[in-house]
Nucleic acid binder design. Structure first.
Length: 795
DNA sequence: GTAAGAAAAATTTTT
DNA sequence: TTTTTCTTAC
């Protein structure tokens, strides 16, 4: 214990030593948060707590694994394995598999990833014969996700009149039905999506108090990392589990809450004290990562946010150089200036390439930097794109695993029924789906007994189906006896996956084959380490459980390569680099144009920018361009408000052409002479317009085709009135109709490319305004305000 | 059932 | 601009 404490500062020590009740550790950027968490757990273990009675929740497997290593270093090898330590999803899934039958599931339930969820939603929308433009899988899933994260079940949603009215207003009146159907279909497939894992844990603890009591008693101490990123569902479980022992310690930084779009609720950390009134608050304010100059800039920025916990982050390092702002003519120039600077840093001999990171708001910004780096032959690595386990060829193999382990898994079924191609195409799949829907059974049940369910297929197709059935059946006979590696080899060969990939001699095909071998390797490794650990064979079920909840950040990265890192600011969270270049710091890009609608949106973007700045240890460079090529067009841009309004000017090393903010910010525009349409577009869009309400058409009660109705699998009790909880979860209503520049139905407008036309209809779709315009030359077109820069010519 | 060609869309993404 | 999705023709 002494040894542990000697490595901590006073405030860290206080946080580590307080174990008598609830505590909130507000950990400023770079303040040694992980250190506190690991030492606290190590301390608990040393003072006699059973590892099996400590629950420690993180957001990534990587974070959990790193802490386990550090804990083992302190208290002895292997101890961390006995902790209940892992991501919310993996720990909750573990509990759910154990208690599955209580909530009507089987413990072998599949986990649908986002792609599976979207595919299912797409099918449901099709089956209901709804407008697929209006009900896009992405939008529907994000809404369902929001609802689940706020613990609103389909029944509760259906019976909530206000929400129904909002959906009708937003022209998505059938959302509630889609949600119910999606929920029922997941249940029928014995599958849970990521959000279900949190939702069902809540249902379990709500409906089975004796189960809750058992876990409440088991977990004598609960620790949660990154609390600012928890959603309501996660928060409520933590609250409930801590209700008996009251030994809960949550760690986080409200200033780094950047995942609200995924359901994270910053209020969970801001109002933690209201939930646990006897909670002690510890603040870690000393930043060990960055120079005072960087910390001051970050502080000066974040001070502009209203919603935050008071704290004073400081650094005791040498002052360091000022945060530098560079301005470029265009995005291309920006890339070459930044890369030139990188080159200079490295040529000075003081830094290596791996000390450099280029951080941007959107992935699409990476391209120009890649090109600029390549031009100078500077090695770089890009973080982004999809993870190994999301690749098609890998997902296909995993889908076989899933189907064998859980034949009711409809998304797995869809994926493998005709892969590799075996002549069972869309037509047959459509028939199977129709029969399954009508009989209320799974696809697998349909093809298990096609005669009984009158599947209308010819003899040839029936034979193909029988072959497929035999294949899956054969695999299911060996799935429990074979170890994961042997089983995978059989799947790959028997299903003809290897043969299929080998037949493709293109570069793409070869890389797929390589990936397949890579998968086999990783399964082999998985088996080896299991054998080392417990002297037992690893099953494919265990492997699948692990990878279903794994993301790309969890994959090993060869950190030793001397390469410049390119990544989004989001993925940089938690990392640090000696030199950081934050690029594209322009209005409508950073802050993102999608965030400008609300103050909360801007505050989150500001936190995101805060995260970006605080990644830097020694040098932080902020860059903007005056012209940016985006979505096929070049636009003139303004430097971000974060530079021009938020950060104290005195703290920055500003570029020569920078107009002081005491003069008009319009001076930033290149186009002030009015010769260009850009400046009129900008001033036009910001102009005050007439009230929008008059131009909205009444929601038309257009008769919809009848949908197939589903019977909910089980009558789940509605959750208690959500508002009765301490925090009302924020289920946001659809955005009000935004500013239309006074454009009303009947107005004449002018479009840059399409010319003049009259407005026939104005709709609100997902926060954007969609105009239906009858153009003089081109006829009727639908146009989003976000992209079309319409000029109002009046009635 | 595939392949080519047209059309439409276009944040961030810890599980 | 690129990327994904939808249509159409073989």
């Amino acid at each position: 214990m002494e040894e542990i404490l000697s490595q901590l500062n006073d405030s860290q020590k206080d946080a580590v030593l307080y174990n008598d009740g609830p505590s909130l550790v507000v950990a400023g950027a770079g303040s040694g948060k992980t250190r506190v968490l690991t030492y606290k757990i190590a301390g608990l273990l040393q003072s006699g707590y059973e590892p099996g009675r400590i629950l420690a929740l993180t957001f990534t497997n990587k974070a959990a694994d790193e802490m386990k290593v550090r804990i083992d270093d302190i208290v002895g090898a292997g101890v961390s394995r006995r902790l209940w330590m892992g991501t919310f999803h993996s720990i909750f899934a573990r509990i759910l598999r154990h208690e599955a039958e209580k909530i009507g599931y089987k413990s072998n339930f599949s986990i649908y990833d986002t792609a599976d969820s979207k595919s299912l939603i797409k099918n449901i929308v099709k089956e209901m014969a709804l407008d697929e433009k209006k009900y896009t899988p992405k939008a529907v899933l994000s809404r369902i996700s929001q609802l689940k994260n706020s613990l609103v079940t389909p029944d509760v949603y259906r019976n909530h009149t206000d929400w129904q009215k909002n959906d009708a207003y937003a022209k998505i009146p059938r959302l509630s039905e889609i949600y119910s159907t999606y929920f029922a279909r997941c249940y029928k497939a014995c599958a849970m999506d990521f959000d279900d894992i949190l939702l069902y844990t809540n249902i379990l603890f709500r409906d089975f108090p004796e189960v809750l009591a058992q876990y409440q008693d088991l977990f004598q101490f609960i620790l949660v990392d990154e609390y600012q990123d928890t959603n309501f569902a996660q928060h409520l479980v933590v609250k409930k589990l801590a209700a008996i022992h009251h030994h809960v310690c949550v760690v986080g930084d409200d200033a780094q809450s950047i995942y609200s779009f995924r359901g994270a609720n910053i209020d969970n950390i801001l109002k933690f004290r209201e939930v646990f009134p006897d909670c002690r608050v510890f603040k870690l304010e000393r930043n060990y990562r960055s120079t005072p100059n960087i910390v001051k800039v970050a502080n000066s920025l974040i001070a502009k946010n209203k919603k935050q916990l008071p704290k004073n982050v400081y650094s005791e390092q040498k002052e360091g150089s000022k945060v530098k702002v560079i301005s470029s003519y265009s995005d291309l120039d920006e890339a070459s200036s930044v890369v030139a600077q990188i080159d200079r840093f490295v040529s000075s001999g003081k830094y290596k390439y791996k000390d450099m990171a280029v951080l941007y708001r959107t992935n699409s910004q990476s391209r120009v930097f890649e090109e600029a780096l390549r031009k100078r032959s500077i090695p770089y690595k890009i973080h982004g794109g999809h993870s190994f386990y999301q690749r098609k060829e890998i997902k296909d193999v995993l889908a076989y695993f899933r189907l064998v382990l859980n034949p009711d898994d409809e998304e797995a079924f869809r994926r493998v029924i005709n892969y590799p191609a075996r002549g069972i195409g869309n037509t047959t799949m459509g028939k199977i789906s129709e029969v399954a829907l009508r009989a209320g059974i799974s696809y697998w049940e349909v093809i298990s007994d096609p005669l009984r369910y009158n599947l209308p297929v010819n003899a040839g197709t029936a034979a193909k189906l029988a072959n497929f059935r035999a294949l899956i059946h054969g695999l299911s006979e060996i799935v429990d006896s074979d170890n994961a590696y042997d089983f995978t080899k059989k799947v790959v060969d028997c299903a003809g996956i290897r043969a299929d990939l080998e037949s493709d001699q293109s570069a793409e095909g070869l890389s797929k084959l390589e990936n397949l071998d890579e998968l086999l390797n990783s399964i082999h490794e998985f088996c080896e380490s299991k054998r080392e650990e417990s002297d037992e064979e690893a099953t494919i079920s265990e492997f699948l459980q692990k990878v279903s909840l794994m993301s790309d950040v969890d994959e090993d990265t060869e950190d030793n390569d001397d390469k410049v890192t390119l990544m989004t600011v989001h993925s940089a969270k938690g990392l640090e680099f000696k030199n950081v270049f934050i690029v594209g710091v322009e209005e409508e890009l950073f802050p993102s144009d999608m965030s400008l609608k609300s103050e909360d949106g801007i505050e989150e973007e500001r936190r995101l920018f805060y995260v970006a700045i605080t990644r830097a240890e020694e040098n932080c460079v902020i860059s903007y361009a005056k012209l940016r090529f985006r979505n096929g067009v070049t636009n003139s841009t303004l430097p971000s408000r974060f530079i021009t309004k938020d950060i104290d000017e005195k703290l920055l090393d500003l570029p020569e052409d920078y107009m002081s903010r005491s003069t008009s910010s319009r001076n930033f525009s290149l186009w002030d002479d009015g010769e260009s349409s850009y400046s009129s577009y900008r001033s036009g869009r910001n102009a005050v317009s007439k009230p929008w309400s008059r131009s909205i058409r009444e929601a038309d009660p257009e008769p919809m085709p009848r949908s197939t109705t589903y019977v909910a699998p089980r009558n789940l009790k509605p959750l208690p009135k959500v508002s009765a909880e301490v925090f009302a979860p924020s289920v946001s209503v659809p955005e009000p109709m935004p500013n239309t520049d006074g454009i009303e139905v009947g107005c004449w407008v002018e479009h840059e490319r399409f010319g003049r036309g009259t407005v026939l209809e104005i709709e609100n779709v997902g926060g954007d305004v969609k105009f239906t315009i009858n153009f003089q030359n081109l006829g009727e077109k639908k146009i989003l305000q976000k992209y079309a820069h319409l000029k109002n010519l009046g009635k």
